[in-house]
Design a protein around this nucleic acid. Sequence first.
DNA 1: AATTCTGCTGAACAATATGACCAGTGCCTC
DNA 2: GAGGCACTGGTCATATTGTTCAGCAGAATT
Lengths: 162, 162
Amino acid sequence: MGTDGIDGLDGRIIVLLAREPRIGVLEMSRRLGVARGTAQARLDRLQSNGVIRGFGPQVDPAALGYPVTAFATLQIRQGQGADVRAHLAGVPEVLELHTTTGGGDMLCRLVARSNADLQRVIDLVVGFDGIVRASTAIVMENPVPLRIIPLVEQAAEDRERN
Amino acid sequence: MGTDGIDGLDGRIIVLLAREPRIGVLEMSRRLGVARGTAQARLDRLQSNGVIRGFGPQVDPAALGYPVTAFATLQIRQGQGADVRAHLAGVPEVLELHTTTGGGDMLCRLVARSNADLQRVIDLVVGFDGIVRASTAIVMENPVPLRIIPLVEQAAEDRERN
DNA sequence: AATTCTGCTGAACAATATGACCAGTGCCTC
DNA sequence: GAGGCACTGGTCATATTGTTCAGCAGAATT
């Protein structure tokens, strides 16, 4: 396709947007030293490309009253995958769910109101027929919060070097 | 403190913002049926509360050329935690890093350009002195992408019921 | 019962940003 | 050499922003 990847200007747009998300297109063009139309067009393209999925608010579960995060590895009974997915999609405390290589394994990210509440959430999650076994790891620290900037910069550099 | 949690209007603001992130405060107030000043004040409060951390662009690693995601569980040698954290923070392909309960365990999210490239990333990640053992699970599907809306709605309902 | 707080309303204002255009220019490809 | 493409720098009318104001209702305090 050739539509994949980003160049240096795209990279700078994303980094700038990550640092100061509420700036408008005009201010953006000033910072980048390009014409407003250019910034506009690049931003439109990044969004229709799917590189930038959106600008949804980043909500902190802790501030919502859910300070405990955990990852659960689930072993699924053969053929029950779809049911389990539907079940987990219905649990608000399941923030994310992946199916991974190896047998019928899934990995999900959970949050809870407290360590005690985590027990309730886990029971809710694994108390379902298709789930054979579950092992949970509680998050203590988050030294590297979810980030994308370093990867964006690397992708932009790689593209530039072509 | 009592500053934790959100009420129904806060919840509707977040949901609305998640659905149509680029709308302004004025449009927001129209949709919610409140005065502009109210919407303004609520949004400001949500941000200074830390409930909304920001509006950074949500970048899709796949569109950047990194379609492969994996989770790696790392076993760390006693006392080497800080070094390992610093090492992993320097690897762009490490999108996220958590320390979890149990021994010296860490869980990190990785991306790579391909399955073959994943080998390079893993070598990069685990080729470090403090890391004793690593096990990797490659993500095949992502039935529930990272989400927060259901939790926001539940938190708002819980608050309302008081 | 009176008072003070707090949050919401509805309105105003100047300043700014937006979306939509346009002609002109440099670069690359065919 | 002609087109196609992306960028520039400019215009325009319209919409939105940040800020401030007085008024009002309900809750809590005195």
